[in-house]
Design a protein around this nucleic acid. Structure first.
Lengths: 152, 152
DNA sequence: CTGATTTACTTAACATGTTAAGTGTAACCC
DNA sequence: GGGTTACACTTAACATGTTAAGTAAATCAG
């Protein structure tokens, strides 16, 4: 007797469970990006920081950490690495001495530009498999989730 | 001049990008589960292993690693911890001496059962925010993604 | 049946993430 | 305006994840 619906008192099958479904989905996507990232000698996390920075123009560490889903201490190390590599510039906020302001250097902007075509090609491959409509709907769903769970 | 569509030659905004959107979405979900997991003194990864095991009945380490999105060496350590805690039982496959066969102990089954109500309550909270329909559509989308990116 | 290859997992070395305490700056409160 | 309190990071200690080499069993080639 197979149950198509969830048993009362039992957890849903893992495939139909947000934490695991989101993780597996992300894994299947990242598999396609990892070769590119490691070819450019950059970690997933560093790439996220660069992307968020590019989008934000400039940001303090707290905003960056939130945007890139990285904890403070990790961010400290990542910024050190990116700064040492010249991709990023960290300076102190003149108005608030506690705060750091981070922005891309010209080199950092160039680095992103150099990777962009490859990244777009990989993304296009994913879109081709999924279809533009389904991809868009999925992104809408993820965005809704984020919004609705955001404030509580 | 604000662009609603993507610039040619530029990457999509991070919110509309699968790797980051999936990560942020998962973070917003896990925020709600983490207090429960840490209250029961179990890590996210250990919990995934238990859930996959419960679903599979029994599995070898390779299957478990795939199902729980955990790499081999991490799994070795996690299984050691779960075995030491008596939640899981590891034995050698009689037909293939390389393979381990892992299954839940009675205690492991009980542990899951004890957590299930809390987990369901949290999940219900998420479903209430999102709506059953939207949640279901999202899970469908994630499932499609996994299937379509699966084989290449 | 022997040696080479593949498979399944483990160990070891290292990088990264995580939690808790520390440091310095700013804001608040009598 | 001195003394708290809160904030924004940083450092330190530790747990976890990751990659590469190692071990042992099974399979394959001849």
């Amino acid at each position: 007797m197979t149950e198509t619906k969830q048993d009362r008192g039992a957890l849903a099958e893992t495939r139909r469970t947000l934490p695991i479904a989101l993780l597996r989905a992300r894994e299947s996507v990242m598999e396609r990006f990892r070769p590119m990232l490691s070819a450019h000698d950059i970690t997933e996390q560093q790439w996220r920081v660069l992307r968020v920075l590019q989008e934000a123009g400039e940001a303090d560490a707290t905003q960056l950490a939130r945007g890139a889903c990285i904890l403070g201490p990790s961010l400290t190390r990542i910024l050190k690495a990116l700064e040492a590599r010249g991709l990023v510039e960290v300076r102190r906020d003149p108005g608030d001495g506690r705060r750091s302001i981070i922005r891309l250097t010209g080199e950092g902007t160039g680095f992103i530009a150099a990777i962009t075509p490859e990244s777009q090609a990989i993304y296009a491959g994913i879109e081709a498999k999924l279809g533009a409509r389904r991809l868009d709907d999925l992104l809408d769903g993820l965005d809704d989730l984020l919004r609705l769970l955001g404030d509580p």
